[in-house]
Design a protein around this nucleic acid. Sequence first.
DNA 1: ACATGTGAAGGCCTTCACAGCA
DNA 2: TGCTGTGAAGGCCTTCACATGT
Lengths: 259, 259
Amino acid sequence: MFERSRPAGDRPSWAAARLTWKEPVSHPMSADPTSRRDIPDATVARLPEYLRALSDAADRGVLSVSSEELATAAGVRPTQLRKDLSHLGSYGIRGVGYDVEHLALEISRALGLTQDWPVAIVGMGNLGRALAAYSGFATGGFHVAALFDEDAALVGTRIGDVLVEPMADLPRLVADRGVSIGVIATPAGSAQQVCDTLVRAGVRSVLNFAPLVLSVPGDVDVRRVDLSTELHVLAFHEQRKQLAAGQGQDVGHGVGVGR
Amino acid sequence: MFERSRPAGDRPSWAAARLTWKEPVSHPMSADPTSRRDIPDATVARLPEYLRALSDAADRGVLSVSSEELATAAGVRPTQLRKDLSHLGSYGIRGVGYDVEHLALEISRALGLTQDWPVAIVGMGNLGRALAAYSGFATGGFHVAALFDEDAALVGTRIGDVLVEPMADLPRLVADRGVSIGVIATPAGSAQQVCDTLVRAGVRSVLNFAPLVLSVPGDVDVRRVDLSTELHVLAFHEQRKQLAAGQGQDVGHGVGVGR
DNA sequence: ACATGTGAAGGCCTTCACAGCA
DNA sequence: TGCTGTGAAGGCCTTCACATGT
């Protein structure tokens, strides 16, 4: 089982805090972020889940985990986990497992979470307000640097500790506050224009909640989150299950935890 | 370009409404949902985007689209689109393109959106309220059938047109209203318990917004949406770009629209 | 002529089997 | 002995080239 020892609750803050892990002397090569390139996209997509599972383990005072324990907590197979981690380096101890704090640091470093990322959110509707108040921003390398809305009635109000600013001030504030990640929580109709404004202001990473595909220059990354898409995929599988049940015939889908 | 003719605005409602498309007599085989099985997961994940793009086209009065036009709107390659659609059937016309309304109907049918899915949302925090008010539920085969929260102060209040119910009534209401899809918008701490309650009530499709991997029986589908994960992935690519820029060296990442 | 539909090729990712090391 | 790290195998998905049909 998990090896626990440190009292639960004193969670090490990997992001932002400079870590105290000492590299064993027998491993003279220290990993800087530039030495390990070519991490597959599929692996990058799973690293945040590993980090979250490690954070949970640390909260419970766990010091060391095996690939099997960590994989279970992350909803993947142990071999998948080990292959993924092998792309970062050799941070495990053979015959033992992984040091929770050390592995969390290395994943944080790989993901770029050892620095703090200022995020701007545009669109203060229901979703935008929920995002602005989201506690997940505080933990792990992100903070809400600015909020924007085109509605004059909303400008000047506060959401949490942050003032809602007019769109006209976006270029200046994005530059002044070093915003590098923009979140679009506007209706679909204004999303492309908002995106263009963000890109012109220097933002090259965009998280898009509006239901459309944004056009951006090749050096800009866009990730989209869409509730409708998720529901549609669930409906597809649900339909399969209901058909199979109705016909008393097993389609053999069998999706378990994860995936 | 797009062939347009029908006046914009009169959008055909594929979901819920029974459609009026007449199958050409030369195609005697009508496609029922059970005839075309084995649609790859990767394809299923893209079908909602095709449907959205078709919906936009229909809104603009477009009657027919080529695979190239539709692919551009959906952020994929034309060959990808045609291969995906080939898994549903042959709904295009060679030398011409696809009938917008007909293709939308076929995709809706494949996804199971020709029937209405009652959705229950648990957790009426900022996110839960935003989801309950989300207009995307209305369009396309879903409706909010019930809202739940454990906080007695929230129970009895209305969000939109729907009353917030106590958790104790969940099993009864889920059964009475035929809920088959559950949305979890609670904190991580109560998510597993809520999930167990939903599954015990008969829900076999779950959309999880809480930051943890849920344990469910093998016949239950879970999809997770996590803001932190999306931000982490963006931070990874952003770090790459900043390193590349700092060293005046092109890493050649080049992520464009989509992907 | 032109755009769809599809077998085949290629590439990426997952899984396996076992080598490597504490 | 036990668990990590990894080359090799296998499977899924994307892309290509072209056959097919209007």
